[in-house]
């Protein structure tokens, strides 16, 4: 039994270390891995996936609305997909998120073969950012637009 307890503690401490590691932004080199783990992963909760980049002004402008969504609605999965350069993951992107105090879940999609994967995100998407995919239990809604206020975003989500 003591051995068991020790194992549990060991396991938990590993998890803690692992959780700290996870604060680094995960980089997806392959769209298929992103699709498997995020885009097409089954989920019972409403999932909002936003495609953006730190250099994209209209994207940056709407980030506070997604942060507010993330804080006000813990039942919604808010996933922010950065299309910044892979080399920016630990530098520019992390700095940006820290500076603005953003705590939403962020990953970086670095697969340059966008001509092949844009349609797989949504056939309606022309490829312009910002773009937002809303994943409901019964399907997807797609918005190739920026949101002008938190109210517009939450209204669009039917909140």
């Amino acid at each position: 039994m003591r051995l068991f307890n020790a194992l549990v503690i060991l396991f938990l401490s590993f998890q803690l270390v692992f959780a700290q590691r996870e604060s680094h932004i995960k980089v997806y080199d392959e769209f298929d891995a992103f699709a498997r783990e995020i885009l097409n992963a089954p989920s019972d909760s409403l999932t909002v996936i936003n495609f953006w980049a730190t250099w994209c002004k209209p994207c940056v402008k709407e980030l506070p609305y997604f942060q507010k969504l993330h804080l006000s609605h813990p039942e919604i999965r808010v996933i922010m997909v950065s299309l910044d350069k892979k080399s920016d993951a630990d530098g520019r992107l992390t700095d940006f998120l820290v500076k603005h105090g953003y705590t939403f879940s962020t990953l970086l999609l670095a697969d340059s073969r966008a001509t092949e994967w844009i349609d797989k995100v949504n056939p309606e998407w022309s490829g312009a950012i910002p773009a937002t995919l809303v994943k409901r239990r019964d399907g997807f809604d797609f918005y190739e637009q920026d949101f002008e206020s938190y109210e517009q975003l939450s209204h669009t989500l039917g909140l």
């Binding site: 299309l83 349609d119 022309s126 490829g127 312009a128 950012i129 637009q145 920026d146």
Partner: peptide
């Protein structure tokens, strides 16, 4: 027809 990532066209609000 092909698709690509790009910047949205900026229209004054």
């Amino acid at each position: 027809v092909t698709k690509a990532l790009g910047c949205s066209i900026k229209v004054k609000k």
